[in-house]
């Protein structure tokens, strides 16, 4: 369809609004009757291919995540358990929200030299852009934990420290290869 067709001037008949109202109503009512039928079948326990609602009933029902969804950060460890991070501050520099706070210190192992003394991420400011992950030359920070329910009663509660970030238990089960095929379970 040519874009200009979308904006063709209204005819006299269109200007009465009546055909347009009927147009609109036909769309919404089509959805209404289709969904109500599916809901009734669902309540009666009859399986259907389609769902009556596209929404997920959070928190009862976790939304499945696409494999590349960016979720809560975590810091990776080396084999010996020390942080991979060398406090190069690339992530801090790349972060558009300026929510990463790093203070570096000397690492006893002179081959690596540097490590973070403080590594805080203020999730209250984070925009989940993932630039920090892209910027990291050490693969030390990742956003693949599958945790999206991040909330706190205080601002400080949104500030994750180095220890917390190193000890996050990823919930990989939240990642699904094809979330669009996972059916929500409506609660009525």
């Amino acid at each position: 369809m040519n874009v200009h067709d979308k904006y063709k001037p209204l005819t006299w008949w269109d200007k009465t609004y009546i055909p347009l109202v009927i147009d609109g109503l036909s769309v919404t009512l089509r959805h209404f009757f289709r969904n109500i039928r599916l809901h009734i079948l669902n309540v009666l326990g009859i399986k259907t291919k389609e769902r009556g609602a596209v929404t997920y009933q959070y928190p009862e029902e976790m939304r499945p995540l696409w494999p590349r969804t960016r979720t809560l950060h975590r810091l990776m460890r080396r084999e010996d358990g020390s942080p991979r991070c060398v406090a190069c501050m690339m992530c801090e520099t790349a972060c558009p929200a300026r929510c990463i706070y790093i203070v570096a210190e000397e690492r006893p192992d002179v081959q690596i030299e540097k490590q973070p003394k403080i590594f805080n991420i203020d999730l209250g400011k984070c925009v989940f852009c993932g630039y920090c992950v892209e910027a990291c030359p050490e693969d030390a920070i990742r956003m693949d934990t599958g945790i999206i329910d991040i909330a706190s009663y205080t601002r400080n509660g949104m500030l994750l420290t180095k220890e917390q970030l190193l000890n996050i238990q990823p919930k990989v089960e939240n990642y699904v290869a094809r979330p669009d095929l996972v059916e929500g379970q409506p609660i009525y």
Binding site: T28, L29, H31, F32, N35, I36, H39, G52, A53, V54, T55, Q57, P186, I187, Y188
Partner: peptide, 13 residues
């Protein structure tokens, strides 16, 4: 509820 069904949602529950 009606708006929810029309908009492919579940509505107040």
């Amino acid at each position: 509820k009606q708006s929810a069904v029309m908009q492919d949602r579940i509505g107040a529950n």
